[in-house]
Design a protein around this nucleic acid. Sequence first.
DNA 1: CCTACCGATCGGTAGG
DNA 2: CCTACCGATCGGTAGG
Lengths: 210, 210
Amino acid sequence: MSEAVQEDVAGRVLDVATRLFAAQGYDGTSLSAIADEVGIRKPSLLYHYSSKEELRHAVLRRVFSHWNDVLPRILQVATTGTGRFDALVGEVVAFFVASPDRARLLLREMLDRPDALAEQMGEYVAPWISIMADYLRRGQAEGSVHADLNPEAFVRHVILMIVAGVATTDAMRPAGTPPDSAVLESHVRETIRIARAALFIDRSSSSGAQ
Amino acid sequence: MSEAVQEDVAGRVLDVATRLFAAQGYDGTSLSAIADEVGIRKPSLLYHYSSKEELRHAVLRRVFSHWNDVLPRILQVATTGTGRFDALVGEVVAFFVASPDRARLLLREMLDRPDALAEQMGEYVAPWISIMADYLRRGQAEGSVHADLNPEAFVRHVILMIVAGVATTDAMRPAGTPPDSAVLESHVRETIRIARAALFIDRSSSSGAQ
DNA sequence: CCTACCGATCGGTAGG
DNA sequence: CCTACCGATCGGTAGG
């Protein structure tokens, strides 16, 4: 549903635009190319979205809207207990892995329109960064979180690691590896491990394997 | 020098193209726009670089070439001793902070041409990732590095964290913060802290401040 | 390094 | 949802 196959034309345009903007960028994608894939003519597309800029906004709006949908669940997971950290990161990872286009669009927007995105980040993401940061500060006060950790910077790093990691799996995959494969999974596992190790003090010194 | 102000026209074209490709992307930058800033006409630009595609390659070639210049020093730092980890990460960070356009170009290329870049990564970056990974495996064998760390994935994560971090400082800066400022510095410090904490076992449990 | 010019494609409009 | 068409701009060439 939602970001999947849609019946109505406007929805199909939105799906195709999302995919092409993510893959080739806004400037690298023409309205004709989008219309062609949908199976209509360019003027018909412009009936549903009166300009290319409006289509861009519609695409981004849906991504942020979906983020707001899952946010309550993520925050609930966050404040449930200390051991839930993996689940929390897992939720954020799942959001982007479920549709890597979200990560690519976000990363492209960071590069193409840093100021405009910084504003939207302030609206949609900043609040939950603050909540997470406060949570980390409580952890520092009770000694479970590294004292020299920079709460806001840490949260931003983890988000960036997740977003950039998902968005660039194709380019960062080891040498001759085929696309897709299990690379993403081991990458995600290492993301969680790094975030965890950089966050909590000790956790019994050595760990898991060996 | 090199990536700074140049006397000859070809060099100035390369400088301007690097800056504009990094800021607006390849498709978002016209040859006329580049020529205008250099102070020449488009056909004159096409005398020095016979196509836009060739100009793109020249821009990327110089970034990778500079990377190869600093690589020996980085590897020397890497193999000098365990305590040199900060210096190693610092060298890589310095490479991108010295010219954030390098990070933006690389990230854009990962998004625009993942396959082409994966090839170039295999040529320029993969060798030193292997060296670093072997080094980490030795650390695991002697117990100084977390046993459950995935060596290749870890190195890729740190690189990605640095590249994405430098490339997106403008968009990721906290809400109303003015551009530039000291945000980058504290961001970089947290990058190093995270990498360090996710790498080494123990290091006396608590740490630095407080 | 220039002027002059090319066909192709861009986002968008008119009008139905 | 279409055909027909717009001016502007694209990368690139001719020819000097």
